[in-house]
Amino acid sequence: MPFPVTRTIAPKPIPSDVGNTFGAYFTDHMFVMDYTEGRGWHNHRIGPFGPIPVHPSCSAIQYGQSIFDGYKAYRCDDGIIRLFRPKAHLERINRSTARLCMPAIEPDTVLDAMVQLVGLDRDWVPHQPGKALYVRETMIGTEGFMAVRPAKTYTFMIFLSPVGNYYAEGADPVKILVSDKHVRAARGGIGAAKAAANYSASLLATEEAKALGHTQVLWLDSVERRYLEEVGTMNVMLKVGDEIVTPPLTDSILPGVTRLTALHLLREWGLKVSERQIAIDDVLAGIEDESIEEIWGLGTAAVVSPIGELTYRGRSRVVGGGKIGPTTAKLYDAITKLHTQAGNDPYGWRVDVL
């Protein structure tokens, strides 16, 4: 369904190349809808991108009722703009709403809004290879009150940002610090939701890692500080001999859509894939005896990010000679091809913006 549109009267210049920026530019328009208990979602509209008013005591500010999700739109080889796996992201955002006692969105309605919004700001979709239009969905509790309880009113937004590489290294291997001091999320908590609080919890360890010359943090489990969980804001995979290993999903690990895509492709290629726990001591031993040849992160922003070095308790180990491995490279090439190839993809994952 088409939603009412108020066009901006002050369009911004569209950058000719966003370079390696991520979130430095925002398009001219955004989609907004409101929720009121007893009324449901209403007042769907597209208008100029910009600030929204919020109550100082709203639950998003006071109690962290704030979630988001994001994926990308690509300018494909045949000139058509396509959204990559938006339905999987919509399913995930409703899992996040359930965990934080927020109202579910109606997936078909929001998908229609995404297509209309990206179509309106289609000139912002980058033309350069490796660049995309990031689609960010956000929901916040907006009711002003002081009791600790779920809000009764919410605002849901979609806004757009043309982006380059998430990491300055691009597809080159990154240096990672293993943290056994801080954790990203605890068992029984909200780690499987894409909640704003999970990202604020990660900031201190990330800043400490960067101060030591690392790109990101490898997170261990919150109970034993022993088993791999995530790397930075991504899921993690390893090639152990002839086996691909990734930690099993728990309530402290975000179920990544890129992870889901990679698992499908790896199994389709006939590789042995296991979703099982792997201890950091076993990882380090495997790097040293070269049974672990490749480690990589997977996420919407960076797609596939090879890990070239791990540092744990002051000692660094180089993974696979510090170079991108063949499985990592093949996976990166396959997923990025799915993003931009002409015609329909074989899995029905993409949605055209007409």
Rank of each mutant, 00 (worst) to 15 (best):
Y166D: 13
V240H: 10
I176P: 00
I176A: 03
E207L: 12
V231H: 06
L228W: 05
L212E: 15
S200R: 14
Y227T: 00
A211L: 14
D242E: 15
A209K: 00
E230V: 12
W219D: 04
Y167C: 11
N235D: 09
V178P: 01
G170F: 08
E230M: 10
S161T: 12
K194C: 02
D180Y: 00
L212K: 15
D180C: 02
Y167H: 11
A168V: 11
L212P: 00
G164T: 05
A209W: 00
V178C: 03
A211S: 13
M234N: 12
D221E: 05
K194L: 08
G232M: 03
M234C: 15
A186C: 14
F159D: 12
D221T: 02
N165I: 04
M234G: 13
A192Q: 03
L218N: 01
K239W: 14
V231S: 01
A201S: 15
W219R: 01
S202T: 04
Y227W: 05
N235H: 10
V183K: 11
F159G: 06
W219K: 02
K210D: 00
V163F: 02
L204C: 07
F159H: 13
A193P: 00
A185H: 05
Y199N: 11
A186F: 11
G164K: 08
R187S: 12
D180L: 03
G191T: 08
G213A: 14
N198P: 07
E207F: 02
E230N: 11
Y227G: 00
L203H: 02
G213I: 09
D180E: 09
Q216G: 04
A195P: 07
I190L: 10
G189M: 11
Y227K: 00
V236P: 01
H182L: 02
F159S: 07
S179M: 06
V236K: 05
M234D: 13
S222A: 15
V174W: 12
A211T: 05
H182F: 14
G232C: 03
M237R: 07
K210N: 07
A201G: 06
A205T: 03
